[in-house]
Design a protein around this nucleic acid. Structure first.
Lengths: 346, 346
DNA sequence: TGCATAATTTTACGCGCGTAAAGTTTTTGT
DNA sequence: ACAAAAACTTTACGCGCGTAAAATTATGCA
C-alpha cells in the first residue's frame, strides 16, 4: 500500500528523497539488492512498500548495454506442443530474474525474420530460438546469431547459434520401432513429403536405419501438403493413402503426433478400428507426446519428449552463454532421449 | 544493405548527418512518415536502406508518455483456442503499426497479477485482457483498468475495463439445443461444477432457459475438477458419470469443446459409439469450435465462435478507446452470435 | 514574380537513470 | 580505541531521443 497523503513518486530522485538514501545507492540496490548494506537494504525496502516505486524500464535499459530481456521465439504457438514448452521456459526465465519476451513466427518466414528484427531492437541479453526449419531464412538467422547470444532449441540448423538443445530423434524412432516390432508387425513410416521441421528428416533416416538393422524392409509413405496444419494434412493424406490401398503394412508409425491425430481421424471416418485388440485393422504410433495425444481415439502410443529437460537445459545453456560473454569455444549440442508411452493405439 | 565502408550509425544524430536532414525532422519522420514532405521522405528512406538505422526503442519510449505497445493477456496460452485468438489479434495490432506484447497467465491468479504488473511498467497504449474469470483477483484487475486503457475480451467481468467483446453465450446454446431437439433427443448439459470461466455459467443458464422454453426438463450434469486441464477433467467426469449410469439422456451437450474432447475419449475407452447413425449409444455436441474439434472421433458438432469478428472488434475497440483518451462515456459490450457446425458427433 | 504558407533547420532543454570521481561516514578487525 | 576498509553521499556527466521556439528556407498560388 502506498501512502496516500504524500506526493507521488515520479522518479528515482523522489524515491531517494522519501527513503532517505542517496539516488546512486538506490540505483545500486535495484541492480543488485545484495550489493548494499543490510541496514540500507532494509530502509529501502521499507520505503518500497510505503511507496510502490519502480524504476522506469526504458530509462534503465537505455543506459544498460545489456537488458534483462530474454527473447523466446517459437515457430507456431498455436501448436500446443510449443505453447507448452514456451510455458516451461517462461517460468524458468522469470525465476532467474529475467523478463521473457515470447514471440511466435506463426509458421511464416517473414514473421520469423520480423520477430528477430524486433528482438534485436530490444537488445536482449539472449534469445532462445526454435526456428521454423526448412522455411527459415538461413542468412537472416545467421546474421541475428552474430549479433545476439542465441541458443537454438527443438529444431537444429547446422552451425547456427552457439548451442542447440533438442531431442534425440534416433532415440525416439528406435524406441517406437523396437516396441512395434517386438509386439508384432513391421511399421511403415507416415510423413509429409516436404516437412518443414528438420527433425522429420532425422526421424525418417532413423526409421530406415532401425528397420534395416532388424532385417526389415523400410517403407516410407510420404504425403503431400504444405504449411503447419499437420492434423488436416495427415487426415487428407491418410484418406488418400487408404483409399488407394497404398498402405502395405498393419502398423503405421507417424513422424509426429499431429499427423497421427489426423491419421486417426481419417481411420475413424473410414470405420477402421485402430489398436491392438482383435477387430483392429491397424496399429498407429507416433512421436512427440503432444498434449492432446492422450485424448485421441484410441489414445496414442508415442515417444515422449523430455519437456522438462529440454526447457531447463535450454535456459541454463543460455545463461551460461550470457555469462560467457555470448560465445562458446565450440557449438554445444545436447540431445535428450525419448521415453516410450504405451497407450491403446499400438 | 548497409554501406560497409562508412562509419557505423550510432544514433539519430549520426543518421541525420549522413542523410543530410536535420535530426528533429528525422524524429518527425519516424513518428509519422506522412508528416514530412515527400521529397524529404524520399531522401530519408534512401538513406534508410543504405544504413539500416532504427531509433533506440528505449530512448523513444522514455520520452513518449504513451508507447506504441499493446498488451495482450490470455488466461492459458497452451489452450489452442487462446493461441489462435492471440494470433489473430497480434496480426491486427502489428498491421495498425503497434507492437503486441503477448502474455499468458497460465491459469494462475498470481501470474495474471504479475502480467498486469509488468505490463503497467511498459506504459502500454492499451491492453486487451482475457481474464482468468472466477479465479481472477478483481481488485488487481480493477486497479489496472484505472491506470491503463483496457478492453476485456472472451470472458467478461462486470464493470471492469471500458469495453467487453465476446461471444453471445445464449446464441451458442440456443443453436445447439435447437439443433439437437429438432434432430431428435433432449440434451443434458455436461459441465464442471466450479467452472473458472464465466461463460460457463451463462451457458448453463441459457441451457436451462432453452429447455424450459421448449417444455423440456433441463438436466445439468456437473462434474468435479479444478484447473485448466479440461480434457482430463471431462474424461474423468465422463467415466464417473457413465459408470454410475447417471446419464439419463441420449444426447450430451458439453459446456465447451475441451470438456467434450475428454468426454469423447471416455466414450471411446468404454466402447460407447458416439454419433447419429444406428449403433450409436450417444450423441455429443458442444461449444467453441476448438481448433481440434474437427479431429475428434467422431468429429464434434459444435457452435463456433466468430474468431475474426471477436478479434477484429476487440482490436478496433481498443484503438477507439485509445483515440478517445482511454475512456468511454459508458462501458461497451459487444457480443457475437455463434454459427453452428454440424459434424458427425450429433 | 511576389507573397503567404508550409516545411525545415538551429538551438536548447528535458526525460529517468547509469555511473564515475571525490569526499564523508560507518563498519570492521585487532 | 584506532586505522583501514567498506559503504555511502555529493556532484556531475552522458545515454538517445522528444519537442518547443525562433530563424531560415522551400513551396504553392495568384
Amino acid at each position: 500500500m502506498s501512502a496516500m497523503d504524500e506526493q507521488p513518486i515520479r522518479n528515482m530522485e523522489d524515491f531517494a528523497a522519501v527513503s532517505g538514501i542517496s539516488r546512486p545507492t538506490i540505483s545500486k540496490y535495484f541492480n543488485d539488492p545484495e550489493s548494499v548494506r543490510a541496514s540500507t537494504r532494509a530502509r529501502i525496502e521499507q520505503a518500497l512498500d510505503r511507496y510502490d516505486y519502480r524504476p522506469n524500464i526504458y530509462a534503465v535499459n537505455q543506459n544498460r548495454r545489456l537488458t534483462k530481456n530474454i527473447g523466446i521465439v517459437v515457430p507456431y504457438l498455436a501448436d500446443p506442443f510449443f505453447a507448452e514448452i514456451a510455458r516451461y521456459i517462461e517460468m524458468m526465465v522469470i525465476e532467474a530474474g529475467f523478463r521473457p519476451i515470447l514471440l511466435s513466427s506463426h509458421g511464416s518466414t517473414a514473421q520469423e525474420a520480423g520477430n528477430l528484427d524486433s528482438l534485436k531492437a530490444l537488445k536482449p541479453a539472449g534469445v532462445l530460438l526454435a526456428p521454423l526449419g526448412r522455411t527459415s531464412d538461413r542468412s537472416v538467422i545467421e546474421k541475428f546469431c552474430r549479433d545476439v547470444p542465441t541458443v537454438l532449441f527443438d529444431s537444429n540448423i547446422d552451425g547456427m547459434g552457439e548451442a542447440f538443445i533438442g531431442s534425440d530423434n534416433v532415440s525416439f524412432v528406435e524406441q517406437t520401432v523396437e516396441y512395434i516390432t517386438k509386439t508384432g508387425g513391421a511399421p511403415c513410416f507416415f510423413e509429409m513429403r516436404t516437412p518443414v521441421n528438420p527433425n522429420a528428416n532425422k526421424r525418417r533416416v532413423a526409421y530406415i536405419e532401425a528397420m534395416e538393422t532388424r532385417g526389415l524392409e523400410p517403407r516410407v509413405v510420404a504425403i503431400d501438403g504444405d504449411g503447419w496444419e499437420f492434423e488436416e494434412i495427415g487426415r487428407q493424406g491418410a484418406h488418400d493413402v487408404l483409399s488407394r490401398g497404398e498402405l502395405s503394412c498393419d502398423t503405421v508409425l507417424c513422424s509426429n503426433d499431429r499427423l497421427a491425430i489426423g491419421f486417426l481421424a481419417a481411420c475413424y471416418e473410414r470405420g477402421l478400428r485402430v489398436g491392438n485388440g482383435p477387430g483392429c485393422a491397424l496399429r498407429v504410433a507416433s512421436h512427440d507426446d503432444h498434449p492432446f495425444s492422450r485424448f485421441t481415439c484410441p489414445a496414442l502410443t508415442t515417444a515422449a519428449h523430455d519437456y522438462d529437460a529440454v526447457s531447463k537445459t535450454s535456459v541454463e545453456t543460455l545463461f551460461q552463454l550470457i555469462e560467457n560473454g555470448g560465445r562458446f569455444d565450440k557449438r554445444r549440442e545436447t540431445l535428450f532421449p525419448a521415453h516410450l508411452i504405451i497407450r491403446a493405439s499400438a
